[in-house]
């Protein structure tokens, strides 16, 4: 999946208010590489809450300003559940999880 101008940030463990700052720092690092496509992989998270969603919303904000593509991987676990609940799934380019099929977007 990774092309020359693609940078992917893989987040693991729990993404909540405690770890959101760290995740934001990692995304900011990836942004400094000025990729044409930034991918944030949320599919391996064991927990994600609304403060974790902030990370993606901020990255999206930056991507629009920089004219860059942002894509996310949600998998079928907590990330998909939270993004669905917040009405956000349709607002992002969602890529299939690396070790599984694309999420059901029905």
């Amino acid at each position: 999946m990774t092309a020359d101008h693609t940078v992917e940030v893989v987040l693991t463990g729990e993404l909540d208010i405690a770890s959101a700052e760290d995740a934001l720092r990692r995304v900011a690092e990836a942004e400094r590489a000025a990729p044409s496509l930034l991918v944030i992989d949320l599919s391996r998270l064991t927990f994600v809450d609304s403060s974790g969603v902030r990370v993606v919303l901020v990255a999206d904000d930056h991507a629009r300003a920089a004219g860059r593509r942002l894509a996310i991987r949600l998998g079928r676990g907590p990330a998909l559940r939270v993004f669905t609940a917040l009405g956000l799934v349709d607002r992002f380019e969602v890529l299939p999880a690396r070790d599984g099929p694309a999420p059901d977007r029905a």
Partner: peptide, 8 residues
Amino acid sequence: GSPLRFAT
């Protein structure tokens, strides 16, 4: 306003 301050 920023994405850091969304609400449900």
